[in-house]
Design a protein around this nucleic acid. Structure first.
Lengths: 185, 185
DNA sequence: GTCTATACTTCGATAGAC
DNA sequence: GTCTATCGAAGTATAGAC
C-alpha cells in the first residue's frame, strides 16, 4: 500500500500531537466504536484541522495500527506484572472483562483489513501463550499435576469471560448468573 | 426515528425485489461485513438504481433489521429441528462454527444501534434457552443427573465454539488444537 | 415499481502556502 | 507543525415524473 511515491511529508514519531491523536483514537474506539475514528473527529476534538491526521499517519489504517500497538503493548506489560500474583487464574478471568470492547472493535477491523489482521494475530497468539503460562503457574503453586492442556484451559476461561462481556454490552444476560457461578470453581 | 412525516411511499412486504434485497444483504454481511451493505451496492448488484432501497426500507437500519429477522428466523427453525437428533450437544457445538461471521457482524452493529440491539437481545436470549434445553435432553437421553446448570453448559460450549470460529477468521490458531481436543469429552 | 434529479453530508487524500 | 484549498468518491435520503 505504502510504496508509491515517497514525496509525501510525514510527522516525526515522538511528536506530542501524534501521541494525543493515538490516545484519543484509542478512547473513541473503546467508547464509540471504530466508525467514530475519522480524521475530522480526531483533529477537531484536539482543536486542529483534519488534515493534521494525514500529516502524522498518511492513512487512517496506519493510525489504527499505531493504536493497536500502543493498546496491546500497555496490556502486555500489565498482564506480565499481574500474572505474578498468587491468583493468576483469577487475573486472566478478570482481564477478559476489562479490555473487551476495544478487542472486539479491533477484531471487527481485522476482519476487513489484511494489515490489521496480521497485527492482531501476532499479539493474540502471544497473549494466549502468556495466559497458558499463568495456568501452569497456578497449578504449580497448588501442587496440582495438570490433566488438561494449559493452552486449552486458558482458551476456555478467556473465551467465556470475553463472551460474557460482549453480551453484557448487548444487554443479553440469559444464563450469565449460572455461568459466572460455574466459573468460580 | 420513524414518526415524522407519513408522506413517504413504501413498498409492500411481499414484494419479490424486497426479498431479493434482503437475501443479498444477508450474503454481503456474511462475506464482506456490514460496511459492504450500502444502497448503491445492493441495488446495482440487482441491476437497479440505489433509490429503490429507500422505496422498500426507508432507512438502511430498517433493512438490517429485516435481514436479522430473516436470518435468525431461519436459524431458529433449523436449530429446532436438529436438536431432535440423538446428539444435541454436538449439534450446538457445530452450529457455533457455522453462523459465526454473520452473528459477529450483527453484534458489531448492535453495539452502535439501539434498535438493532433490542432486536438481537430478543433472539440471543431465546437461542440460549433452546441450547439449554438441548443440554437437558442430552443428559436425559443418557440418564445422567445434571451437576451443573444446563444454561451454563450451553453458554460455555457456544462461547468456545464461537470464539474458535472468530479467531480462525483472524488466522489466530494458538491453542485451538488443544481446545478442540478438550471439547470432545 | 422503478426511474431521474437533486440535496446535503462526510469521508480519505494530496499539494502547497505560511 | 499547522494551515488553506481542493479533489473525487461515496453515503443517506427526498420529491416527483413515468
Amino acid at each position: 500500500m505504502r510504496a508509491k511515491k515517497p514525496t509525501r511529508r510525514l510527522g516525526v514519531e515522538n511528536s506530542e500531537t501524534r501521541a494525543q491523536l493515538i490516545r484519543l483514537a484509542a478512547r473513541l474506539i473503546r467508547d464509540e466504536g471504530c466508525a467514530a475514528v475519522t480524521a475530522r473527529r480526531l483533529a477537531e476534538d484536539l482543536g486542529l484541522k483534519r488534515q493534521i491526521v494525514h500529516y502524522y499517519f498518511g492513512t487512517i489504517e496506519d493510525l489504527i495500527i499505531a493504536v493497536i500497538r500502543r493498546s496491546v503493548g500497555k496490556l502486555h506489560e500489565r498482564v506480565r506484572q499481574e500474572l505474578e500474583s498468587d491468583e493468576p487464574l483469577r487475573v486472566i478471568w478478570q482481564l477478559g472483562n476489562i479490555v473487551t470492547t476495544a478487542l472486539f472493535e479491533f477484531s471487527a477491523m481485522a476482519m476487513r483489513s489484511k494489515a490489521i489482521k496480521v497485527e492482531m494475530k501476532h499479539y493474540m497468539d502471544e497473549f494466549r501463550r502468556m495466559q497458558a503460562q499463568a495456568v501452569t503457574r497456578h497449578l504449580e503453586l497448588r501442587g496440582i499435576t495438570p490433566t488438561i492442556s494449559p493452552l486449552a484451559t486458558a482458551f476456555v476461561i478467556n473465551s467465556v469471560a470475553h463472551t460474557l462481556a460482549v453480551e453484557k454490552a448487548l444487554d443479553v444476560t440469559e444464563g450469565h448468573v449460572e455461568t459466572e457461578a460455574l466459573m468460580e470453581d
